[in-house]
């Protein structure tokens, strides 16, 4: 696909132009961490930007969301209305390729053949994804496709003082005035290869999925969970974890909140029976869901290697080590980092 070379100034002009039509969100530094926020219209992420603390999923699937609003009137039928669909047109600029890919995984869940979540769908349709390829990985990163274009409408590569722009989707092509810029020549495209990206051996490969098939009843889960405190931070910070709860609040709304398979109430039935009664079953569920059940259902693992769970786990339970341990038949191996 054609790539175009833009100076930093060109890029700013183009983004400014997009800002006339779209709400442009970009990585914004709050104290020491980055999160997506309103773009100030002038600055671009500097070298200190590696990735946002929170994954972008909440921009499409908010942690708390009103689904329905209702009003009870004594003696009359209640008035129930679906919440208005979000209409704001947005650009997300500077999203990392791993996180852009996570959106294509969430699409499989929320935009299925049979059922489409209307709120998620509206946000996806109204949002343009401009991803920015990493210059170098964080210590906790373990993605295998740093140049992945999946989930991106436009991909940007940073080359010293210039940017290489590659429109991917139709939506991306329509939003990029390619006629105004020069197509990059091969010499420049070759330079991309100089970007310092170490990719790691594929941790979640097909043989892992096969192995997981055999170890459902293995003692490995009990051993692994001894460390886990079931706090759920891994699932909240995971760009692909999508579990939620639906409840009625007392203010006349039916709401959706993020939930986690790490919590005991997640599967506990009214009778008191719980199919996943202890941390062992819950940790197993989380690993199995990402690396066995999701691939069985959708043909792809539900992990993009962003490393947030590795970084933020309060007890240093490293998913890379868990997977290697499973791969190597239960032996505890030090992660290669």
């Amino acid at each position: 696909m054609a790539k175009y070379l833009l100076t930093k100034k060109d890029l700013l002009i183009w983004l400014k132009k997009l800002q006339q039509e779209y709400e442009v969100l970009a990585p914004v530094k709050e104290k020491k961490v980055y999160n997506f926020g309103h773009w100030d219209g002038k600055s671009l992420p500097d070298k200190s930007y590696q990735n946002t603390l929170k994954p972008p999923k909440d921009l499409f699937f908010p942690q708390h969301e009103i689904l329905l609003k209702y009003k009870k009137v004594k003696g009359q039928r209640p008035i129930i209305k679906a919440a208005d669909l979000p209409e704001e047109k947005r650009v997300i600029f500077g999203i990392r390729p791993c996180d852009a890919k996570s959106l294509s995984l969430l699409d499989k869940v929320f935009l299925g053949e049979e059922y489409q979540d209307p709120f998620y769908q509206a946000r996806r349709l109204n949002t343009l994804i401009i991803s920015l390829v990493c210059r170098e990985p964080k210590e906790s990163c373990f993605c295998t496709q740093p140049f992945s274009v999946e989930g991106s409408d436009i991909v940007l590569f940073e080359l010293n003082d210039k940017y290489l722009v590659e429109p991917i989707s139709e939506k991306g092509k329509n939003c990029f005035p390619s006629a105004s810029y020069c197509e990059a020549d091969f010499h420049i495209i070759d330079k991309i290869k100089e970007i310092k990206i170490n990719t790691y051996e594929e941790i979640a490969s097909a043989d892992l999925t096969e192995k997981l098939d055999l170890i459902f009843d293995s003692p490995i889960w009990k051993e692994l969970q001894e460390k886990c405190i079931n706090c759920g931070v891994c699932s909240f910070l995971c760009p692909t974890c999508h579990c939620f709860d639906i409840t009625d609040n007392q203010q006349g709304s039916k709401v959706r909140n993020w939930d986690s398979c790490m919590f005991s109430g997640f599967t506990k039935q009214a009778s008191g029976h719980n199919p996943r009664p202890s941390g062992t079953e819950r940790l197993r569920q989380r690993v199995m869901h990402k690396f066995k059940y999701f691939p069985d259902k959708y043909g792809v693992v539900a992990c993009v290697g962003c490393g947030r769970c590795v970084e933020k786990c309060p007890v240093n339970l490293d998913i890379r080590q868990v997977l290697l341990q499973i791969k190597n038949g239960g032996e505890k191996l030090e992660c290669r980092m």
Binding site: E114, Y115, T267, H289
Partner: peptide, 8 residues
């Protein structure tokens, strides 16, 4: 409808 993730 297969989205909330708990009944698998």
């Amino acid at each position: 409808i297969g989205m909330c993730g708990r009944c698998n």
